[in-house]
Write a protein that binds this DNA or RNA. Structure first.
Lengths: 239, 239
DNA sequence: TTTTTTTGTCATAAAACTGTAACAAAATCC
DNA sequence: GGATTTTGTTACAGTTTTATGACAAAAAAA
């Protein structure tokens, strides 16, 4: 499982031993691990660093995992971050509560590192297709994350790293609109100071690159005025 | 929120009682349920009907759930269908094997219908965002808030942001009359200084856009003289 | 170091969107 | 019918947003 930058996972647990155990195992798997020791810290950190996945202990001081989860789900900026809830309890009520609240998975303690890892991977496979699949496809565009190769109508396309990342992002969720802010956060990293208009230029470069070998050019990146960009054809297409 | 086609779920289990129990619960939730009683049948059926999600019992005659899962994952056509594995065993080895093989979730028997349902929904939320980020519908008009796409009789319609917002507002409560003041407040924001007549023009633009691809135009926005506008047909409106 | 590629910003052009006014058409009231 | 009120329609100007090419800085490669 490779990627351009490490996958960031935030863990929140008030038990130092547990935390360390998870950290150790995830680090071994080449994830970047950030840890928090209570609910509030978890919430703050996740808003600062935009992890790719969040693991929350159910019972924590200050704010429970469930509450953190609820908070995160209520903000559009963190709505799509996958969340796994850890819990010592095993009663059904809890399990379903966790999932209903918008968590993506619920793991009961005690669990083995192996199991947690398997669940993490299962979730990432869905939420970040580029991390799991060899390639992503949309209409006649295909990109291979591991090798950074892009093919359009079977022909290889040259893109700079930034353009590649932007296109990858759009391909992970076709038709979904990404605001310039979102693109900046995901591609450049959160908190970087770059002109929003810069994205327009990169989009232009992607479009240009895709045009080169196709006389019959169909603009595959939709401009959504006032909102951002989305992968999808402007006129026809499914939903 | 309803959809035109139901979400198809394939269940494979060799225990008729179990099968019936799940079928009953899923049908109640408005899923379309297809069932198979062994692994081979499950495999055949899934290739025929492309379910949106597959639930496989681990132990089945002819072909185990794991084997079916492996097969499905090996073909590009079925690679992306989410799979849930059911199992009576609880040993860790099994759990992780299921997930490693590419299943999206692993549920241990006995489980409550409520839990299974929660997991199904959690998975669908990830794998088919369009089902979660759904749309609003009125007669043959559909709008997708998350992608800002509008379809009328299946064809995409182009609307400016303001028009999109107005239409969204009307769609939220079909048949309800919105006064111009209400529309101004909700769409432009409270306290803005805009001519009320401006709304008429936007309404006109929406109507025009909806007319473009339909010769048989049925005015879907009703004018309520002296009051405002409402979504609904002009023919049978009250007042 | 030099060369090449990539990247960010700016200026300007182009396109899309919006609000208004003016007049036409329709509905309502007398 | 005729006057009055309300809505429909169009054109247009003003505004906002996006597209594009050029250029220099930065980074990477040679």
């Amino acid at each position: 499982m490779n990627s351009l930058s490490k996958i960031k996972i935030l863990i929140a647990d008030d038990e130092p031993n547990q935390l360390e155990l998870i950290r150790f195992n995830l680090t071994k798997e080449n994830f970047e691990v950030i840890s928090a020791s209570d609910g509030e810290e978890a919430l703050c950190l996740s808003e600062e660093i935009f992890p790719d996945l969040i693991i929350l202990d159910w019972m924590m001081p200050k704010m429970s995992g469930i509450d953190v989860c609820r908070k995160l789900r209520s903000k559009s900026i963190s709505r799509d971050i996958p969340i796994i809830i850890l819990s010592a309890r095993g009663e059904e009520g809890d399990r379903t509560l966790g999932l209903e609240i918008g968590a993506d998975d619920y793991v009961t303690k005690p669990f083995s590192p192996k199991e947690l890892l398997a669940r993490i991977k299962a979730i990432l496979r869905r939420s970040r297709p580029s991390l799991a699949n060899d390639y992503m496809e949309f209409e006649n565009l295909r990109i291979y994350p591991s090798t950074q190769i892009v093919k359009y109508n079977g022909e290889k396309i040259d893109l700079g790293p930034k353009e590649f990342k932007i296109l990858s992002l759009l391909m992970e969720r076709p038709e979904q609109i990404f605001s310039r802010t979102q693109i900046l956060d995901k591609v450049w990293g959160h908190g970087i100071d770059i002109e929003q208009r810069t994205i327009d230029v990169h989009i232009r470069r992607i479009r240009k690159a895709l045009m080169i070998n196709s006389n019959e050019f169909k603009n595959i990146i939709r401009t959504v005025r006032g909102s951002g960009y989305a992968l999808g054809t402007n006129k026809f297409g499914f939903h």
